[in-house]
Amino acid sequence: MNIFRLTGDLSHLAAIIILLLKIWKTRSCAGISGKSQILFALVFTTRYLDLFSSFISLYNTVMKVIYIMCAYATVYLIYGKFKATYDGNHDTFRVEFLLIPVVLLAVLINHAFAPMEILWTFSIYLESVAILPQLFMISKTGEAETITTHYLFFLGLYRTLYLFNWIWRFYFEGFFDLIAVVAGLVQTILYCDFFYLYITKVLKGKKLSLPA
């Protein structure tokens, strides 16, 4: 464990909690892409199946359980409890255009052609593009609630910090995972436009609205 990975995980946890609280407190999921949240629940489900097969550490197990529970609670709030506030007309990204390439890539490019490994690879590739329905929805509505931008900031920051974690681990532990690094780079690059708007607008007290 290193400082980049720890702050990365905490940033990820913060994002997940911010979103859950936003929906719960405002009793509304306006501006939130349910499709992205379903994809994140799928990412955690396929990646954390090893919860039952291998024990890494208490921290690892506890965080995985929290992530999975929050992900499904968020999906439930969007499509169940507060579905009247779900903006389906703007949440129209064709997720099959993500899932099919990701499945193919996971089957073709992986560390080992074994079920658990292919599921892990699928979850890594899927996570790198899972935010696209949410970013697409914001581009369609032309704006985002400030709390939603904070959610996106911490979510984008988490994988950016993981990039530094991988540099650290390569240098100090000789650990290197090309699949995770390439997917992590793609994931972080997808946030660049948002990061620019967040820093130049939201941090200056303005509302995030598009076109910039």
Binding site: S54, M63, H111
Partner: peptide
């Protein structure tokens, strides 16, 4: 490369 069998990152 990553240790096979288990990935220790979240």
């Amino acid at each position: 490369s990553a240790e096979l069998g288990h990935h220790d990152e979240l």
